[in-house]
């Protein structure tokens, strides 16, 4: 059952991710991206990471993608107004994307040789354990990332201001 679910979710994730790139209408792209996020959240639940799945849905599908959709609807982009890019740029983009894929495949090949720490621990992703690990073992990276987020927030408020005195 879990295996079938895994294959279904993977299929859904890959298919909708492809559709994000292929579809001509930007609004459709965003909707497919939301579907991809849901499929990935399903994967998190399969890995017993319920908290991660819930936060993934709330933050990505519930907030960030709504803002994406908001902006795209406001701009009212469609195929007629889209500027056509030159052939050279398209070839360069394909080449760069291919290189990125080579790097990714290389990383994943390396990663498969590592052994999972607790393969049988089904309680690992529960919020209690996650909180304990975050606030003891990974205290410094956790705090540093919060400073990073704060800096980003201050920056966006500054950019959003109408005039800087």
């Amino acid at each position: 059952m879990t295996l079938q679910l895994f294959y279904f979710l993977s299929f859904l994730a890959v298919l909708s991710a492809l559709m994000v790139v292929v579809s001509k209408n930007p609004v459709h792209s965003v909707l497919y991206l939301i579907l991809t996020f849901f499929a990935i959240a399903g994967h998190y639940i399969l890995m017993n990471a319920q908290f991660l799945a819930a936060v993934h849905i709330i933050v990505y599908a519930g907030a960030i993608m709504v803002l994406f959709l908001y902006v795209i609807m406001m701009l009212n982009l469609n195929t007629e107004v889209e500027p056509h890019k030159s052939k050279l740029l398209k070839i360069a983009a394909t080449f760069a994307g291919g290189l990125l894929m080579v790097v990714m495949v290389g990383v994943i090949r390396q990663a498969s040789e590592t052994v999972p720490l607790n393969p049988t621990d089904t309680q690992m992703g529960l919020i209690k354990n996650l909180g304990k690990v975050l606030y003891t073992d990974f205290m410094l990276p956790f705090e540093l990332s919060s400073i990073l987020l704060l800096a980003a927030m201050v920056g966006s408020v500054m950019i959003g201001k109408k005039e800087i005195k």
Binding site: A54, V55, I57, I58, G62, V66, L69, L126
Partner: peptide, 24 residues
């Protein structure tokens, strides 16, 4: 579920898509 509140919150946050998609 042990994250019941977050589940409710997640469902609420995707509820806006019904209105947005319909309106667009």
């Amino acid at each position: 579920v042990n994250i019941g509140i977050l589940y409710i919150f997640g469902v609420v946050s995707i509820g806006v898509y019904g209105i947005m998609i319909g309106g667009w």
